[in-house]
Design a protein around this nucleic acid. Structure first.
Length: 293
DNA sequence: ATCACAACCTGAAAGC
DNA sequence: TGCTTTCAGGTTGTGA
């Protein structure tokens, strides 16, 4: 489910309630999800304070007072739900049988003076729920990048521009669609936003990566940024079950121009084409073959 | 080395 | 109605 905008939406929901709080208790309901949990996961987490929650590509990165870093990846169906202590099952339609991790966080003793922001003076739980179990968590010591080691540039960073993308694509003869899904080329895109960005740049997903000009790469890098920024503003995309931690649904899915729009007419009034769907590297690609070349 | 594809899972939706 | 098939936002390991 989650690509960069959805992960960022989750981060923005979790950061205000988790930062500065201590892991009072951690419960694992199974030994593994996509991968086994790290050795002594519970013991290494309990007692630590979550200092800062940031994001790198599709990873949530929690800096801990212990010096370690907790990495969390939502896979396809991972989701976080906030609940009051002793009241784990709450808002939304999530099935509690897929609650794999329960963090009990310390409450905040200080009365908040910011009215718009929820205060939680007593302990509360953060539940990680993941039906398909493609998500995973890692604990990293200083200097260890774990599974983030091979990630390419952050698409919203200033350094991600046409020339950088062009250089990364120069040696690749795979279709541009596949290259943009490769997290080593650019990190954070998934199937939805690759389709949308390619449409915005008028570039066919079938084009071979090494045939893109620097100008096309510049245009593409701009489309990637604007697509992601718009989606973040919309709170991400809710296809089946994605929701922010407070249960709020994203609404960027209403703005899809091509993704899941097979047989609809191209949104460009001057084009008149029809959106097609094809399979590339096992994933559906949606595009308009009239205006994407 | 690169690339396409299967595998890892469950559940929703479509097809029969 | 119910059973079967297909598909899904990601990543990783394989085999060509």
């Amino acid at each position: 489910m989650p690509e960069l905008p959805e992960v960022e939406t989750v981060r923005r929901g979790l950061a205000p309630v988790m930062e500065g709080r201590r892991f009072e208790h951690v419960r694992l309901n199974r030994a593994d999800i996509r991968f086994p949990f790290p050795d002594n996961f519970v013991g290494r987490l309990q007692g630590a304070v979550l200092k800062r929650l940031s994001r790198r590509a599709k990873f949530l990165v929690a800096e801990l007072s212990s010096g370690e870093t907790l990495l969390m990846h939502l896979g396809m169906s991972g989701r976080f739900v906030i609940g009051a202590d002793n009241c784990p099952a709450e808002s939304g339609t999530h099935n509690p049988k897929h609650d794999h991790v329960v963090f009990t966080m310390s409450g905040n003793d200080q009365p908040s003076d910011s009215p718009g922001r929820a205060t939680r003076s007593s302990p509360f739980v953060i539940i990680y729920n993941d039906p398909r179990r493609f998500g995973f968590m890692e604990l990293l010591s200083v200097g260890d990048q774990g599974r983030m080691a091979l990630l390419g540039p952050e698409p919203l960073s200033n350094s991600f521009r046409g020339p950088v993308l062009h250089a990364a694509l120069a040696a690749k003869k795979a279709p541009i669609k596949s290259a943009l899904l490769d997290q080593r080329i650019v990190a954070g895109l998934g199937n939805i936003y690759v389709c949308e960005a390619l449409y915005g740049a008028h570039i066919s997903p079938l084009r071979l990566s090494n045939t893109l000009s620097v100008d096309e790469c510049e245009l593409l890098s701009v489309e990637i940024k604007t697509t992601l920024e718009l989606a973040i503003k919309a709170g991400g995309s809710t296809l089946n079950d994605f929701a922010a931690v407070d249960g709020a649904l994203g609404y960027f899915q209403h703005r899809f121009k091509v993704y899941a729009q097979k047989d609809k007419t191209c949104p460009d009034k001057n084009c008149g084409g029809t959106i097609s769907r094809t399979k590339q590297a096992g994933r559906s690609s949606f595009y308009c073959d009239m205006c994407q070349k």
